[in-house]
Design a protein around this nucleic acid. Structure first.
Lengths: 345, 345
DNA sequence: GTGAAAGCGCTAACAT
DNA sequence: ATGTTAGCGCTTTCAC
């Protein structure tokens, strides 16, 4: 199971009766080579099951064909879907991906990023653990192309791919307002992340546009238990909302769990708009109305941008903003009672 | 954003006034070095933000500190959780992971595997796309350690980490039988995968042990629509079961969706045991009784095994079989009517 | 169009 | 204990 060393380019060259340089040229298709030699080289390579050593190729050539991908967590489907989308694109062009998780911790992120960089990848795609993105200095120092996904500070001088979070928040809210909801709660694990704040902004915007009172924003923590507790506390002090917007896929699950625990029925008693669109949301009963982020589009856009940079594009950093779309299902419905117009503010 | 080259070991050596070899020894902690020089080297490295070039290190040293991970799909949470578990272990020991998806296609798997191997990783962890695992020849030819996860043929001469699928199927079934269920359907996207067949075996075993009639096994396809159609067809010809066991997490979702579409209430009308335990299953209403695979344990076992091999262990291939545990929630409940004893066979 | 030779950044053997 | 040297497998001038 160990020991036997893979054939080298020199082995192939000997077998084909040519020089290593020619083998290199044939296999990389870099220079014009006599068709006869091409055939001999290809056959020798096939016979030996030759596979180029990418590390050596990289070392000498300075070009690597690996991309580093660093995400805050590999336990969150949103990030792994992003990785899936990127991998789908990359592999077609002969690239591979080094994947690492920051485990939601900026110090871990720094360590993992350094590790990825030590492979001298052709580029990096990163979803920062925090939107301050303190570790970008490593990327800048490494002087390689990178794309920042999803969580992004405003003033970042870098290529960015994100969704229009304000619009996403606005669409969700407008949908609920159109259904007659006036008492909306907005729930997120943490309100400090920029993309979450932007979603909140969109919510407020929609309310102001409709002349509806602003919703309550609730930060609920990172575990199902914490979320249930927060919400139960809110129920006691403020009664119950007519609708809830959950701003992440985790929040969506946690709110559902809390409702289920408190025997609050969706959508009969409370409507729910979730975030991110995953299979379980359509399987769930009721199926969940959700804001669907274009994960594939984001992955494709990131790679598109990165490839251009690797190719030498030196244009100013770009910001790709994709649009999230509301997928309406069963978890939202019109408020059953006539709207009390005096509630408007 | 490009151009600037990272400092090399020679740069560090010059700055510290020592030889490159000493820098190497200090940084790798391989040989005893004078504390004074150690300090100088470390400082020089820090000042230059030196990061070792792992490709070069690998080329020269023959040891790589990358592990290739190949899974059938990156869209399935089960596989990405496995990756997360492995990454968590690996990174602590300075390893990184190259990740690739076979996209459920053996030919793609072959290409991706070849790509991973061309990095000459220290080892490979693979969940084969099919349990025939035709592509293992590539791995054997590469003569490097690898661990096969989850989907495994019986006679495989390799290190294997899997769960006891028979036991898992048996536990699910026994639970239902104990609740009085006698008319059980077993649902899977595809019945040909070995681990699925083993789960089915466990189901039959439990039935025979309890003297209960064997369940109906239904292959339902890979999309929600296909699953709903299959099940609806079965309802027409065979009526409805009192309980369903879904043998994968996808099947679990799809069955739920089909029930929801046909307004079949869980668990009032039908009990449901799902497979794999994910957050949404506890958030769902009703929460889903499920067979929980020890994903972290599997990842840890795989790395444990692989690391030993990398370290030179040449013992005979081992098979690590972990146990899946039934997590009982709300989607299963006792049949409401007294059991008709005449139904027993 | 092809080959010879140099060298990418590092580590392991050897010499000091 | 440290430095010198050679060379991992490849690509890239530069001769021919």
């Amino acid at each position: 199971m160990r020991a036997r060393k893979p054939p080298t380019m020199t082995d192939v060259a000997k077998r084909a009766g040519v020089s290593p340089a020619t083998v290199s040229n044939v296999l990389a298709g870099r220079k014009a080579v006599d068709p006869d030699l091409v055939a001999r080289v290809r056959q020798a390579a096939a016979e030996l099951d030759y596979q180029i050593d990418r590390a050596a190729s990289h070392l000498r050539g300075g070009k690597s064909r690996v991309i580093g991908i660093l995400v805050p967590s590999l336990e969150n489907t949103f990030f792994t879907s992003l990785i899936a989308a990127v991998e789908r694109q990359l592999q077609e062009e002969g690239y591979d991906i080094l994947v690492a998780s920051a485990n939601d911790d900026e110090r871990v992120e720094r360590r993992r990023l350094a590790a990825l960089l030590s492979w001298r990848p052709a580029g990096v795609i990163i979803v920062p653990a925090h939107d301050s993105f303190a570790n970008r200095d490593l990327l800048d120092a490494a002087a390689l192309p990178y794309v920042v996904l999803d969580r992004v500070g405003t003033d970042l001088q870098a290529d960015i791919v994100a969704i229009d979070n304000v619009q996403a928040g606005r669409d969700a809210t407008t949908h609920l307002i159109n259904l007659g909801h006036r008492d909306i709660w907005v729930v997120a694990s943490a309100l400090k992340l920029l993309n979450i704040r932007q979603r909140c902004e969109g919510v407020q915007l929609a309310c102001r546009e409709a002349g509806v009172k602003l919703p309550k924003f609730i930060e609920v923590g990172m575990t199902f238990e914490a979320v249930a507790e927060s919400l139960e506390g809110q129920f006691e002090t403020s009664g119950r909302p007519s609708a809830v917007i959950a701003l992440t896929n985790f929040a969506t699950m946690a709110v559902l769990a809390a409702f289920s625990k408190n025997q609050i029925s969706v959508p009969a008693e409370v409507s729910l708009v979730g975030f991110d669109d995953y299979a379980w949301m359509s399987a769930s009963n009721p199926s969940i109305t959700a804001i669907r982020q274009p994960v594939n589009g984001m992955g494709a856009a990131a790679w598109d941008c990165l490839r251009r940079r690797i190719g030498g594009d030196v244009a100013a950093p770009t910001r790709h903003e994709l649009t999230a779309h509301l997928k309406i299902r069963q978890s939202t419905r019109a408020v059953p009672l006539p709207i009390d117009i005096t509630q408007r503010q």
